[in-house]
Design a protein around this nucleic acid. Structure first.
Lengths: 114, 114
DNA sequence: TTTTTACTTCAATAATTATTGAAATGAAAG
DNA sequence: CTTTCATTTCAATAATTATTGAAGTAAAAA
């Protein structure tokens, strides 16, 4: 992970349709969803969906493979993990406040209002 | 944290100057930096710097206060923590792969290549 | 109280990003 | 081999975001 990749990742996630697409894919992991299913779930036209999925794909946040007439998209958890790690470690300097927000998400730390 | 705030946060971070400004502020936390020092450190004109700092400020990622002739900016770690938590928990569903990338950033988990 | 320093605002322009809808492609079914 | 389905591509347009530089504001120094 480096600045350029992190920026591409952040840009890719910073659009409502794309963030929703990612969440839909997370909900259906590890099987993924077809482009058409994603289009339906985010209520977007086919070309719009392709446009946004391409950005996510170029950023490495999703991958795709053709299956017969469908194209199945899957979320790349490792890419998201790398982005979060970069933000936490390289951008926030591993600051305790930030680290504890991530830790408290797993229910083990003290309850913070993150 | 909700989708709209998360999107504003992601947008705010997805510009090279803004991400660098945040990193510069993290490096100087908790004291912060003046607008002029930030401008110097990211090599930007005064108005450009104000423009970008305003976006970060509106997103809640930085705060500012006037001190004599200077305006001192500080990074809001809680906001960054809330964003990371939202991404980890609400967007990634707390998926182990993502969680472990954050955990391994603190050096305690198994070494993953995040 | 004029000048200097530090920063912000504003309006014009440039650049990037997003949307639209029609045409094209790839793959299977008839 | 034509048709249908699923998706992508493309070109035109719209919308948003970023840059520029000049003018304005706030605070302290001269």
């Amino acid at each position: 992970m480096n600045e350029a990749i992190a920026l591409a990742n952040l840009s890719a996630l910073s659009h409502p349709m794309r963030l929703r697409a990612v969440r839909a894919l997370v909900a259906r992991a590890p099987n993924g969803l077809t482009a058409g299913e994603i289009a339906t779930s985010i209520d977007a036209s086919p070309s719009k969906t392709t446009f946004h999925l391409n950005l996510l794909s170029e950023a490495g946040i999703v991958s795709s493979k053709r299956q017969a007439r469908h194209v199945v998209y899957q979320v790349e958890f490792a890419a998201l993990g790398a982005l979060l790690r970069y933000l936490l470690e390289d951008c926030c300097g591993g600051h305790p406040t930030v680290r504890e927000c991530c830790a408290s998400a797993s229910g083990d730390g003290p309850g913070l209002d993150c």
